[in-house]
Simulated assay, not measured.
Amino acid sequence: MSVNKEPYRRGRHAVHAVKYHFVWCSKRRASVLKGKVGNRLEEVLRGVAEEHDWGINSLAIRPDHVHLFVQADTRHAPYQVIHRFKGTSARVLRDEFDRLHRLPSLWTRSYFVSTTGKVSEQVVEQYIEDQS
């Protein structure tokens, strides 16, 4: 299980706390992410995170959308992170559940992303101003 509550991660060349809150919806907001599909979706998303060494801090799968709070790394832009989660999960779920082929695609093209951090914008601005 990929759970990472550590505030900072260390790489070869960077120390970072890059965390994203993603939300994305099923195509046509179809209520297909429940029962076995929802359970399998969670397994797939956790597998993607583990494969890329990303930590899932929180995950909520609703019948027609997903909330994912993930700590990624500095090598991947947000669009790359969401692309991995949505692309892999769509392929796996549509291969395993024939009824998902009724939709033209599993996910909409859209998504929401927001970053989070340990300090507020005001603290960062004040810190930078204090450096002069």
Rank of each mutant, 00 (worst) to 15 (best):
V3K: 07
F112G: 06
G11D: 06
E121I: 15
L103N: 00
E96I: 05
F22S: 02
R99T: 06
R10C: 07
I56Q: 04
A49R: 09
L106Q: 03
K118T: 15
P7T: 09
K36I: 04
C25D: 08
G117K: 07
S89I: 03
T74C: 13
I61T: 02
A72V: 12
G117S: 14
K118M: 14
H101N: 12
Q126F: 01
E50F: 10
Q131A: 00
S26L: 03
L33D: 01
D53W: 02
V70R: 02
R46T: 05
V15S: 05
G55R: 04
R46D: 02
G117I: 07
K118I: 14
L93Y: 09
K34Y: 11
V124D: 04
F97W: 09
F112I: 04
A14M: 09
V44Q: 08
K86V: 05
C25Q: 13
H65E: 06
R28D: 08
R75V: 08
G55P: 01
H76N: 10
K86P: 07
P78T: 08
R40P: 03
N39W: 01
G87E: 04
Y111V: 11
S2V: 12
Y8V: 03
E43T: 12
K27P: 00
S114M: 12
Y79S: 14
E129V: 11
R102Q: 14
K36D: 09
L33F: 11
T74S: 12
D73Q: 06
F22H: 00
S120E: 03
F112E: 02
V124P: 10
R10E: 15
V70I: 10
V44R: 06
H101C: 02
S114L: 12
R28A: 10
R84W: 10
A14S: 14
P104C: 00
L103R: 00
L59M: 14
K86G: 06
N4D: 10
S2Q: 10
R29C: 05
R62W: 09
S105E: 06
V44K: 02
W107F: 10
S105W: 06
V18S: 12
L33C: 10
I82M: 06
S26R: 01
H13W: 11
E43G: 01
R46I: 01
V66D: 02
D130P: 00
T116L: 07
K34Q: 13
R28N: 13
S31P: 05
Y127F: 10
W24A: 05
V48C: 01
Y20P: 06
K118H: 15
I82T: 06
V23I: 11
Y111K: 02
L103D: 04
R102W: 08
F85S: 03
R10P: 00
E51A: 09
D98L: 13
T74M: 13
L33E: 01
V18C: 14
S110Y: 02
G11S: 11
W24V: 05
R28F: 09
V18N: 10
N4S: 05
K34W: 15
S31T: 07
L106F: 06
R46M: 03
Q71N: 13
S2F: 13
S2K: 14
N39H: 11
R102A: 12
S120P: 02
V23E: 02
I56V: 14
S2H: 08
S26T: 15
